[in-house]
Design a protein around this nucleic acid. Structure first.
Length: 257
DNA sequence: ATGGTTGAATGTCAA
C-alpha cells in the first residue's frame, strides 16, 4: 500500500501537477495540504476521474486539507471535535482499508514569539491530546502532512543559522517529541539516516532547488507495528522541477499490507 | 542585503 503527502499550495493551481503525478505514481492514498479552497469549489471530479474517492475540509483562501483514496473512505473526522481552533481547516482523518489516516497542516508560526508562533505551539499541544482522545499506539495509524518543523539538524540546509528560528526552534522540537512519544515512527528516517534530503524549497531563495537549500518539514509517521511493515519511504523531487510547482514536493511511503 | 516568489483575491496577507 502506497501512501503519500503533498503540500499543494493551492489544489487548483497545482491540478496539472497533481493529475500527472497521480496518473504516474498511482498511490493508494494521497494527503494534500494547503488546498486553499472552499469545499464547494474543490475540483473533486478531476480526482474521481482518476479513480479516487475524496474527503475534504477547506476554507476560502487559506489552509485546507484533503485525502484522496483509491479504496473507499469511512469515518471522516474534521477539526479537533471541539470549539478550540475553530477558524482554520488543518486536520482531517479517516479510515481506509482498516487503516487510520490523519492528515494535518500544522500552522507555520510566522516568526518566533509572534501570536502565530504561540498558536502553532498550542495547536501542536492540542494535536497530542487529540491522538490520546481518538487513537491508541496499537492502532494501525498513519499521521502525515506538512508538519512545518525540521526536527533534526540534518533536516534543514543550514541548521546553525536556522536554529532558534521558526520551523527549527527548541519549543517546536519539544512539542513534536511529545507527539512522536505517543508511539510514532518517522518512517523516512527508518530508511535514510543521512543529510541533504528535503521536501520544501523556499520560492524566495534563488535557485534553492538546484542548490538543494531546503527543509524536511513534510513527514510520514506510523505507529510502531505499522512502521515495521513499512518497506520504503522517499522524497520525489521530480515534480518540484515541473512547470508552476508548489514550494513543497511529494513524500511517499510503501507499506506491506 | 530585511530582499526574493507565489496564490488568493483585487487590499494585502500568508507562506
Amino acid at each position: 500500500m502506497k501512501i503519500a503527502t503533498f503540500n499543494a499550495a493551492s489544489v487548483r493551481a497545482r491540478l496539472p501537477i497533481l493529475i500527472e503525478w497521480l496518473a504516474t505514481e498511482e498511490p493508494d492514498v494521497l494527503a494534500i495540504q494547503e488546498t486553499k479552497v472552499e469545499d464547494d469549489k474543490f475540483p473533486i471530479a478531476d480526482f474521481e476521474e482518476l479513480g479516487y474517492n475524496v474527503a475534504i475540509h477547506g476554507q476560502k483562501a487559506w489552509n485546507g486539507v484533503a485525502i484522496l483514496s483509491r479504496s473507499s473512505i469511512s469515518s471522516v473526522r474534521t477539526g479537533f471535535g471541539d470549539e478550540l481552533f475553530p477558524n482554520d481547516c488543518r486536520i482531517i482523518s479517516c479510515q481506509v482499508n482498516g487503516l487510520s489516516i490523519i492528515n494535518t497542516y500544522v500552522p507555520n508560526g510566522n516568526t518566533v514569539g509572534s501570536d502565530k508562533f504561540i498558536y502553532k505551539l498550542a495547536w501542536l499541544d492540542r494535536f497530542r491530546t487529540y491522538l490520546d482522545q481518538n487513537f491508541h499506539p496499537d492502532d494501525q495509524l498513519v499521521w502525515l502532512g506538512d508538519v512545518n518543523i525540521a526536527p533534526e539538524p540534518i533536516d534543514v540546509f543550514d541548521s546553525k543559522r536556522m536554529l532558534g528560528g521558526v520551523g527549527h526552534h527548541p519549543d517546536e522540537f519539544v512539542r513534536l517529541k511529545k507527539i512522536v512519544d505517543f508511539g510514532l515512527v518517522d518512517v523516512f528516517r527508518k530508511f535514510e539516516p543521512g543529510p541533504n534530503h528535503y521536501t520544501f524549497f523556499d520560492f524566495t531563495l534563488p535557485r534553492s532547488v538546484d542548490r538543494n537549500l531546503g527543509w524536511r518539514i513534510d513527514h510520514i509517521y506510523a505507529t510502531r507495528g505499522l512502521a515495521e511493515v513499512c518497506t520504503g519511504c522517499s522524497i520525489d523531487m521530480v515534480p518540484r522541477s515541473w512547470t508552476r510547482p508548489s514550494d513543497h514536493t511529494f513524500v511517499v511511503a510503501e507499506f506491506d499490507l
